[in-house]
Design a protein around this nucleic acid. Structure first.
Lengths: 215, 215
DNA sequence: CGTTGTGAAGGAGTTCACAGCA
DNA sequence: TGCTGTGAACTCCTTCACAACG
C-alpha cells in the first residue's frame, strides 16, 4: 500500500471482480478466495490480490474475501453508488439495441433520453423512450443533469455531438463511432469499435493457425 | 528491429492507423507523417513510429509514410486480405444490430448465418439473413467453413455456445455476453462488455469531478 | 494450516533524444 | 532541412515467493 492511486489496469478489472462477486452472492456464497475470483474472471490469483490490495484490506488470511463487503467497496470505488443520467445519441441499429439493453439500469445508469437527427425517427418509441431531436442535446443535458453520453451516430458527426454534449456538461463519453474523439482533460472518453475488435481477433486467429494441422 | 513478433499493444493500435489511412486515402492524401497519424488516432508520434517499425521499414525519412503501401502492409499483417466467414449467435437487440452492421463486410468479414435458440425468432429475417436454429451451430460452422463467431446470447448460455462453436472449428470469438469464456490455447477470444465499459468510465468521471467547481 | 498482503524481481510498453538518411 | 528508425532510460504492470496472520 502507501499509494492511494489505483492503477489503470486495476480499474479496468474491477468490473470483472464485481461480476463474479454478484454471481457468487446470487448463489449464496459468502466468501471467495483470490484463487476463486481469479478462476471466475480468467486471471491469476496474484493479480487479483495485488488489485484488491489497492482498495485496502478486505480479505481475511486463511479464509478469503467477504463477498458483500468487497462488493460494496468495489461499487463505491467505481462510483456506482448513486444513479447517473445517460443520454443516447443516435438511434440506428446499435443505438436502439443500447436503448433496450438492461445492463445500463442494472448498474445505476439511468437512460433519460434518446436523440436522433433523422426527422423520421423523432417521435418514435424505442424501448421505454420517445426519440427526441438531436438539436435538443444541449438543452436536455442541462435540464436533466446528464453526465454520461453514449455516442452511436456515424463517424462523421461524432465529434460535433461530443463537443455539444461536453459544452452542456457531459463529462463521460462512451463512443461507438469508429473515429477518435478529441476531448478536454476533465472529460473521459472510451471508444468501443466493433470493427477494431474484429481486426485484432483476425491478427491472432491467423497466428494461431499455422496452416491447419490435419489429424 | 531484430524481433519478428509484434507486441500486443501494437497490434491493438494497428486498426486505428488503418482507419486514419483509409480516411486519408479517401481525401486523396498520399503521404502521412508519424505526427499526422498520431493526431488522427489520438496518440503521439513516437508511439506511431515505434509501432510501425515492427512491420518493417515503410517510411521515408524527411517525408513520411506512403498511404497505399502502409495500408496494404497493415491489412496484410492483420490478416484482412481474404474474406472470413462469421456466424452471429443470438439475435436479440444487440445481435440484430450487429447483423445489420456494415462494418463487418467492409473489412472482409462475411456474415454467413444468424442463429438463435428462440423458436419465435427462427425463420424471421434480420438484415439479409434468415434466422436459423442455434442447434444447427456445429453443422453450419462445418459446412460453411466458419472461423469467426460473434456471441450475443445471455451470459448463462455463452460458454456452451462457445464450446460448440470451437468444437466445430471456430478459432476466433467476439463475446458480448458479460461473462468470462474459457477457451483452448488455439482459440482467441475477446470480450466486449458494455456494462464494464460504463463502470470504467464511471470511475474516471468521479475522479475528474472534484466536487464541481462553480464558475 | 491456508490464504492474504507485499516487497522485490522481471517483463512489457512508453517516451526520450538523436543519429541516419532522403 | 525534416522526418524516420531506434537504442536507452523510464514507467507501468505482472509475477514470484514468502512472511504475516487469522
Amino acid at each position: 500500500m502507501g499509494d492511494r492511486r489505483i492503477p489503470e489496469a486495476t480499474v479496468a478489472r474491477l468490473p470483472l471482480y464485481l461480476q463474479v462477486l454478484v454471481e457468487a452472492s446470487e448463489v449464496g456464497t459468502s466468501t471467495l478466495s483470490s484463487d476463486e475470483l481469479a478462476q471466475g474472471s480468467g486471471l491469476n490469483s496474484a493479480k487479483v490480490r495485488k488489485d484488491l490490495s489497492f482498495l485496502g484490506t478486505y480479505g481475511t488470511r486463511g479464509v478469503g474475501y467477504a463477498v458483500p463487503e468487497l462488493t460494496t467497496e468495489i461499487s463505491q470505488v467505481l462510483g456506482l453508488v448513486d444513479d447517473r443520467s445517460v443520454v443516447i445519441v443516435g438511434v440506428g441499429n446499435l443505438g436502439s439495441a443500447l436503448a433496450s439493453y438492461d445492463g445500463f439500469d442494472r448498474r445505476g445508469f439511468r437512460v433519460v433520453a434518446l436523440l436522433d437527427a433523422e426527422p423520421d425517427r423523432i417521435g418514435t418509441r424505442v424501448g421505454r423512450h420517445e426519440v427526441e431531436p438531436a438539436s435538443e442535446l444541449g438543452a436536455i443535458v442541462r435540464e436533466r443533469g446528464v453526465t454520461f453520453a453514449v455516442i452511436a451516430v456515424p463517424a462523421a458527426s461524432a465529434q460535433a455531438v461530443a463537443d455539444e454534449a461536453i459544452e452542456a456538461g457531459v463529462t463521460a463519453l462512451l463512443n461507438f463511432a469508429p473515429t477518435h474523439l478529441t476531448v478536454p482533460d476533465h472529460v473521459t472518453c472510451r471508444t468501443v469499435d466493433l470493427s477494431t475488435e474484429l481486426q485484432i481477433l483476425s491478427f491472432y486467429e491467423q497466428i494461431n493457425e499455422p496452416r491447419s494441422a490435419a489429424g
